[in-house]
Design a protein around this nucleic acid. Structure first.
Lengths: 198, 198
DNA sequence: ATGACAAGTAAGCGGACGATTACATTATTT
DNA sequence: AAATAATGTAATCGTCCGCTTACTTGTCAT
């Protein structure tokens, strides 16, 4: 723990310090959500002084905004058919809870959902941009609503696994869960071929 | 605000006080999550002294456990066909974000997901019991996993609307969203009639 | 070499938190 | 009525929080 950002930090380097703070903040915000994260711990993990958070990011919420800025990457989904996209998204949903699979803004959003302060940033930096980006990949009618539902479903899997924590959703059940999740995603991505009854 | 539990509290009534604390705590935990909720505010809303939380519930976490105990009610879903269950669940998912539609343990769980302390209680009192109850209503193969995925999807809609807050998921879009959500739920509840390809 | 400024630090501010203490008040029992 | 227990209160403890201030230390242009 308390690892430095790069190799051996030069004695004084504002950019490196800023970056070390960002790295530590990413981890801490993801672990505990916005309110649960402590600026003292972030600074300690970054190996620098608390006051530098205020200096470089104005305040805690500024650091949060910086962490959340431009953190969306849906490029792995580009060019996939709806079928492949559904299964890729299922994999993403199931991987989201794996030990540490890096930084995940959706996890931060969920864990920060108790904080009114963080909500605004999340909505602005994560909500619409992410929906728009995914909607562009989906295309067709109601693409934005489909994208919103898709992202909701993916987030929901995380909630079911981690926040609610049912053992039926445990990692060992992935083989059973994946087809179910894929089917749900496919139902949203693909137009309903034929209504069941009525 | 700061309403008393019953009519006119008798000068001293431990049960009424306990209950007033529970009512206030429900509201506060739902509003701000476990960590964001303040025992001082809960006591003030209940119209009693902070110390009584410790006396009657041991500690904040004890009050949280009491709030979360036996709060599951899936009876409206009993006896429904998978089709009807899917649309009922979609309604539930969409209603979860309506102003104040009463106490909702799933919302509390999501808003408290940043707190390691609350997690344990949520998993024990909400996770498995809720999955088991819903699984009993679903029946068939992999009922527990289906139930887990269903609850995850329903929670996810809340996350998408409130935590992530995409405008494509706003309340005004319900007419577009409902069929999409229903389709997703149906895909989990009903066995896949015919695989698309392979 | 020496200013001038950037970068980093130590200490502390005021406030909120959960929890506890010692005490006052009311109800119940004998 | 007196004794005992139940109920409620005020005040405070220690801790953590985000943030700021006054200061020191390093870097670099001149």
């Amino acid at each position: 723990m308390s690892e430095r950002a790069g190799s051996k930090r030069k004695t004084r380097d504002a950019d490196a310090t800023r970056n070390a703070l960002l790295v530590a903040a990413r981890t801490e915000f993801q672990r505990a959500g916005y309110e649960g994260a402590s600026t003292r711990k972030i600074a300690a993990d970054a190996g620098c002084n608390i006051a530098l958070i205020s200096r470089y990011f104005g305040a805690k919420i500024g650091l949060f905004e910086a962490v959340m800025e431009g953190c969306i990457d849906l490029s792995p989904l580009a060019g996939l058919s709806p079928e492949d996209m559904a299964s890729s998204l299922a994999d993403i949903a199931l991987k989201k809870t794996d030990a540490q699979s890096g930084f995940d803004p959706l996890v931060v959003a969920i864990r920060s959902s108790g904080s009114a302060t963080a909500q605004e940033t999340i909505r602005k930096q994560l909500g619409d941009p992410m929906v728009d980006e995914l909607a562009a990949l989906i295309g067709g009618d109601d693409a934005k609503q489909k994208a919103g539902v898709i992202l909701s479903l993916v987030s929901g899997i995380y909630v079911g696994r981690v926040a609610i924590g049912a053992s039926a959703m445990a990692v060992g059940q992935d083989d059973v869960l994946r087809p179910l999740i894929t089917a749900a995603l496919r139902a949203v991505l693909l137009p309903v071929e034929d209504g069941a009854e009525e």
